[in-house]
Each structure stands twice: as structure tokens, then as C-alpha cells.
Amino acid sequence: MIYPQYIQPVSLTEIFRKIPQDKKIYFLAGGTDLFNYLRDGLVDAENSCFVDITLLKYAETNGIVEETENIKIGALTTFSTLSESKLLKQYCPDLVAAAKVLGTPQIANRATIGGNIANASPAGDALPPLAAHFAKAEITNSKGSRLINISDIFAGPKKTTLANGEIITAVIIPKIKAKSGFTVVGTFKKIGNRKSHIIAKASVAVFAVVKNKSVDYISVALGAVGPKIIEAKNISKILTGKEISPELTEKCKDEIRKIVSPIDDFRSTAEYRLEIAPILFQQAINEIINE
């Protein structure tokens, strides 16, 4: 087997000093997607370099930190860690719900939030919750760092807008606080073939601030029903300041049918995805108002 070039830098500075300029750069963390691409011949091994980033300093790229306005998640944070985070449970219950169902325990121990973004799959489980939170990714290159809206990172299925050699170092999620009497709620629903290892045929993240059925804030994003994650902005307009009712829920489901653009692929059909996406939304709404 021909392997790509491999380097294992210990700091961001070392990355930018060492990455070869003439090769396609793949940052290697948990490898749960990348190793399958390598095995399947989807990586041009001779002209690529795998930059193993698992030895980077913890403070540079790992852990979940509360800041005044935001939650900052290091890109190397694994889904096992996300699913156990009390801080995220408080502010991003939908992201915790997604982390819990990402994959098998073996995969969740390895897969990272940065990798889920970089892989840019429309079915990536962290992506609908991050879109629902209007999260930003911190992108670092040799000149410094900048923040990009999560939704602006995706150029299409498995394609990002990042330049070769640019690395995702963190995810920044703005904190939304509940006003008195209201509660932060959120969940993530997806459907697929094997309970512990579902790659979504369709998925929905719902994040809201509610008091019983009364909605103060709501944000919804859909996965695997279009070339990119879809933000259902009109649902916020339909439900904010209202009581959730069967009529309004139906209106939201119609809106979902309007904004999705599902396709037939090896995992499912466009017809099924169109049918199931509104139902996943319904399930999510039922769950958050019954919490």
C-alpha cells in the first residue's frame, strides 16, 4: 500500500512550519472518516500529506470552555466528551443529543467535532445543531485566525471553502440565556439503518427557549436533506412568541417540505427524505414541549 506523507507536529506553529506546500493537506485526528477514504483509494497518496494533530497542545485545540458570551469547543474534542459535558447540556442540549447518537462507542471515542465539520458531509451529526446555534468555526493558518459562520464553511457535499493547509482549531457557540421562567431546551432526531451507528438519511436539530408550550426563541436546522445543512429560518418566524399548537406545527412541517432539496443516493431516496424530515421535526417538537 502506498501511504501519504505523514507528519506529527506538536504545536500550531510547528504545523505551519512543516506542512509541505506542494501537497494536499489532510489533518488527521480520530481518522474515523479519513481512514476509510485512504482505504477506498479516495486519497491521492503520493501527492498528499496527513498532518496528525493529536499531539497538539491541549489548550490550543481541546476541551470545552465557558466564555462571557460564548462556549468555545476545541476542534479535537471527541464526541464522547461532548456527550458528557454538563456545560453543553445547559446551553446546547441539541448538540449533546447529537453527540450521543453520532456512532458506536468506539467511533465516539475517536471522532472529533473539528473532523465532523471538516468532513463536510450533509449527514454530519454535529452540523445541524451548530447551524441552529449560528456557531462559528475558528480557522487558523500561518497568518493567524479568523471566524467563519458554520454554514459558510460548506461549499457542497464533502467540500469546504477552506484553503489547502488551513485548519479548524475551535468552534464558538454564542450563549442564549433563558429569561425568567423559561427553559433552554433542545434535541436532535435522525433516522437511519442501525441504531448505534446511524449515518443519517435525514436529521433535525431543534434548539429553543420555552415555558411549557410558549416559545420565546427557536432555531431549527436540517441535515442530509440537501447538499448542505439547511437552516429553517421561517420556523423561527412562525413559532417565536407563540404557543406551539398542532396547527402551527403543521405550518412548520409545510415549511420544511418547501425548503428541503433531498436526493436519491445509496442511503435513501428523495421521496422518503421528503416524507420523513417533517416527521422528525414533529418528534423533536413533541420531545421539547414534554421535557
Partner: peptide, 27 residues
Amino acid sequence: CEQGECGSCTVIIDGKIVNSCIFPVGQ
């Protein structure tokens, strides 16, 4: 399966289970 699906290659690394079929030995 050698693609991180079946778990038959599971080993424990520093107290956590991982699929050794998608784990680079460099790590």
C-alpha cells in the same frame, strides 16, 4: 469489516475502546 463498523478489531487504548482497523499506529 476493516471500516470501523463491526467492532471485531476492538482494543482498549488508555481505558477507552477503539476500532484498531481505523487507528493509525503512529498515534
